[in-house]
Nucleic acid binder design. Structure first.
Lengths: 208, 208
DNA sequence: TAGATTGTTAATCGATTAACAATC
DNA sequence: TAGATTGTTAATCGATTAACAATC
């Protein structure tokens, strides 16, 4: 009913980039922008930006361009980040700690709500104002807090098991920092962050 | 001369994923694999894997598939990660520290070689066996160590300046953790890691 | 009004997939 | 040999770009 159908995933993936650029423009006090200007900043063609946005509605005015604040709000709604998503962090090593302390989540729609680890030495420790809980408590706690989004920061060998447990507890979006491809049921979304993969991608081009 | 021409960047981007899967297979003691099996694991079609590899040569045998160790070595060479790249980390906050301590670089062709921060309170501190150096020392040190690869873990407001300095010092590949698009000269490669962008991409699909 | 910029259409470009002969 | 799987070609599919009428 009134559903916006069939928008390519690659388009969805660019919306957060547009959002980021718009928020910088807001900081700069810029009131209007154009597809040309945004494209310039982001290294994307203006036609692509207009096409992408046109999937969701008409946000601009001919001759004037886009109202920065308005477009920002619209994209926030489209991505559903005009709300605050509580997140679980699993694995409280160096990376998990960095995620727990990261200041950049809150302004962009997320909030670390609970931390889990299987190391007894860590359980109960206070990290960024949260008590580290055991993996055994994870299912209950994730359900209790209605957590739908989680970040996995455990070794590759444990990542699939953790993912299974998270899914069972109701998590539907996983950001996986472990360098391994996860198998999840349909309807559960996974994104990967593997810095080494990015680095290796670039070294290909570093010939002489 | 004998150059392999015009390989799509998107293909290069998948090679690290193949490499990762192959290294898991090596750990498992698997000797042979097939495009079908790899595709299964990675959620990629077998045709795509064969097509991707065919850009670089013929690595398989009909009827048998691919020798895991051999294909692994070949892709390592293609990506130039059969060597150890020294890396600079700029910004020694929580994230920079996590990167400095990360154990996963060395086995995959990288090594954190130097750390920089502009906070006087941090300079001289020992982090993961390295002394934090000042940004003023960066250009000299990067040149001295012939560092070509760097990771930026400073606030967005400082990232462009840092990038400029790194490029001036000879860095040609930058992994940028700051949530901002960088402008760099041709021939310098940038990849981005913005966890929030990935999260926002997924929340789009978390409708009801 | 004149100039600028949108939203959209059609054309182009590129990537993925299906199919299969070759062959281990 | 029979079965399996490659590397490659051609067909399909999808994404990007160019162009422009509409209009602010």
């Amino acid at each position: 009913m009134g559903n916006i159908p069939n928008i390519p995933d690659i388009v969805i993936g660019r919306l957060p980039i547009y959002l980021r650029a718009l928020s910088h423009m807001i900081e700069e006090g810029k009131e209007y922008t154009s597809s040309h200007e945004m494209g310039e900043r982001l290294g994307i063609s203006s036609a692509q930006i207009r096409k992408d946005l046109s999937h969701f509605g008409e946000f601009g005015k001919q001759g004037t361009g886009y109202n920065v604040g308005y477009l920002f709000e619209q994209i926030r709604q489209i991505l559903q980040v005009d709300q605050q998503w509580p997140m679980a962090v699993v694995g409280v090593g160096d990376l998990g700690r960095a995620l727990a302390h990261y200041k950049g989540f809150v302004s962009r729609g997320f909030q670390v709500a609970c931390l889990f680890d299987n190391n007894p030495a860590l359980i109960g420790e206070d990290v960024a104002g949260l008590k580290v809980m055991s993996i055994e408590q994870m299912k209950d706690e994730v359900r209790r807090q209605k957590v739908k989004v989680a970040m996995i920061a455990v070794p590759a060998s444990a990542a699939q098991t953790v993912a299974n447990q998270l899914v069972e507890a109701g998590v539907r979006a996983i950001l996986n920092y472990a360098p391994i491809t996860l198998a999840v049921p349909p309807g559960v979304h996974v994104q990967y962050i593997d810095p080494v993969a990015h680095l290796q991608h670039m070294t290909y081009y570093l010939k002489p």
